[in-house]
Design a protein around this nucleic acid. Sequence first.
DNA 1: TCGGATACTGATAAATTTATCAGTATGGAT
DNA 2: ATCCATACTGATAAATTTATCAGTATCCGA
Lengths: 123, 123
Amino acid sequence: MYRKKLPEDLECGITIAMKSFGGKWKPCIIDAIDKGFRRPSELHKVITEATPRVIDLQLRELEMAGIVYKETGSGFPLYTAYYLTEKGESILPILSLMNSWGLQNKDGVHDAQHQKKKRVICI
Amino acid sequence: MYRKKLPEDLECGITIAMKSFGGKWKPCIIDAIDKGFRRPSELHKVITEATPRVIDLQLRELEMAGIVYKETGSGFPLYTAYYLTEKGESILPILSLMNSWGLQNKDGVHDAQHQKKKRVICI
DNA sequence: TCGGATACTGATAAATTTATCAGTATGGAT
DNA sequence: ATCCATACTGATAAATTTATCAGTATCCGA
């Protein structure tokens, strides 16, 4: 994992929150897991824009942060499922607040001058 | 400003929220303005880690997003002040939620192996 | 024994965000 | 005329996050 060179303020709750569940895919992943898409392959099916590799990396970070945990069955085919921890679930209300705020404030956000090709499922 | 090359999902509220007030300094700036530090120089005094240039860039983006607005006096010395719009104020409860979540979950966040030199004032 | 499905990894590149540096501009005071 | 404080800008570099590509490994069933 990338080793940071610039200092961060780990006393600031917002910084910690951002670090824990901010970023491009983490909120989507948390939401999808909550909705019952638990296996990496399922997650990739609902979050089509992100490659499995990217989803995997994000899952690893969420795991490190104690937001999801992993369950592995040794059967066939390989079975892995991710679940939200209690800590992970405590994020849901925040995400839902952010989501409604965003939806109520779509205006003033100018499109980045290009079409999106696929749709991300996200709350 | 940087011209994006990768698509974004502007239907997703969270993406919009992140785009609007996510990032390294925006939450701090919003909070500081709310606390009454309105002038660029004042903001720099409380957010010492960020250079005036960086703060200025963030302010510009917050302005574009309709989160702050600017008032300019033509007197001496040059006087500029930023205020939260209604939209900007509607972010405060979210920030405060994120902040308490972060503070309650400091654990599991490992320091990025170096000391921070200065302290950011942030909620 | 081979192939398909699933989960995962290492190395590297590309995109994006932040930071740095060296300026411009204004108007009053010295 | 020069300097100081304030706000701001352009160009560029550095840091960080995301994406891409090409793999490895497991197990089953054909």
